[in-house]
Amino acid sequence: MSATGPAIWSLKVPEAYPSPQSETVPDPYNSMESVLGEDFRGLIDPADFVDGGRFRSIVKIQSRCNNQGEDFWMMASGWLIGTDLLVTAGHVVYDKAYGCGAATQIKCYIGYNGADSVPKQGSSSDGAVQPRYGSRVVTTQSWIKDSDSRLRDVAFIKVHKPFVGDLNVFEFNNNTVSPSTALFGVVGYPGDKNFRGEFGAQLYELFNNTTYDLDKQPRHMIE
């Protein structure tokens, strides 16, 4: 029987400043996903992710895991639904692909545009790029315990203090009409894109009019 209910844990918030990691590995599902057809992902204008920009609430995530005593960092993306709460994938906070289990530390950034864009320790943390630590995590029990649980691959991360400014946080909308055609977009930090030697350093977008029918999708999800 599938596990139900939430899985919740707290993360220790270090006193050290959340400087970005120089070495990260891609999202563990990167090799399972690809761009179909022509790759027309476009680099997002920085004006779109500064304060008040349309993608200000897109979050760059670095998640620390431990595999047999060795720490390493994974890169990922998320989006704000509150000043101190963001949504991401379950595998960002609890890894099964690498066999690491629960994340032991999480760093989150809005306005991120490469490691050099992050303010140094002693600078204001409320500027164009705002760094935060994850302090509390919620995912699903079924993501942790089930062998085939992509339907429950979701998580929420609470950061140690709210982001500030005009964040343009996302709102939930359950008015999906199916079948239909709609303009769908994918926005985030792709791990296959390189900027000054850093993978997943910059924000990209891909939008396209897409016809879909949820009843015909394998997981009844838009994919």
Rank of each mutant, 00 (worst) to 15 (best):
M1K: 11
S2E: 11
T4K: 10
P6Y: 09
A7T: 03
W9E: 01
K12E: 02
V13M: 01
V13W: 00
P18L: 05
P18N: 08
P18S: 09
S19H: 12
P20L: 02
S22T: 12
T24D: 00
V25M: 01
P26I: 00
P26L: 05
P26R: 09
D27I: 08
D27G: 02
P28S: 10
Y29R: 12
N30F: 05
S31F: 10
M32A: 14
V35N: 07
D39C: 10
F40K: 15
R41F: 01
I44L: 03
P46L: 08
P46H: 07
D48A: 13
V50A: 00
V50E: 04
D51P: 07
D51L: 10
D51K: 11
D51R: 11
G53P: 08
F55M: 01
V59P: 00
K60L: 10
I61A: 03
S63L: 03
R64H: 01
R64D: 04
C65N: 14
N66F: 05
N67V: 14
G69Y: 09
D71Q: 01
F72L: 06
M75G: 02
A76I: 01
A76P: 02
S77P: 05
S77T: 15
L80Y: 12
I81F: 09
I81K: 03
D84Y: 12
D84L: 12
L86P: 02
A89Q: 09
G90A: 09
G90F: 02
H91E: 03
H91Q: 03
V92A: 05
G99M: 08
G99T: 07
G101V: 10
Q105S: 13
C108A: 15
Y109T: 01
D116G: 02
D116M: 02
V118L: 04
G122W: 00
G122L: 00
S123P: 00
S125L: 12
S125F: 04
A128G: 01
V129I: 08
Q130T: 13
R132Q: 09
G134I: 03
G134R: 03
S135F: 07
R136A: 08
R136P: 06
V138K: 14
V138F: 14
T139C: 08
W143C: 06
W143V: 03
I144F: 02
D146K: 05
S149L: 02
L151H: 06
R152A: 11
F156E: 04
F156V: 14
I157C: 04
I157L: 10
H160L: 12
K161T: 12
P162C: 09
V164Q: 15
L167A: 00
V169C: 08
F170G: 03
E171R: 08
N174G: 10
T176I: 10
L183W: 09
G185N: 11
G185V: 11
K193T: 00
F195K: 05
G197F: 10
G197E: 06
E198R: 06
A201T: 13
Y204D: 04
E205I: 05
L206F: 14
F207H: 14
N208C: 06
Y212G: 09
D215W: 01
K216G: 06
R219G: 10
I222R: 07
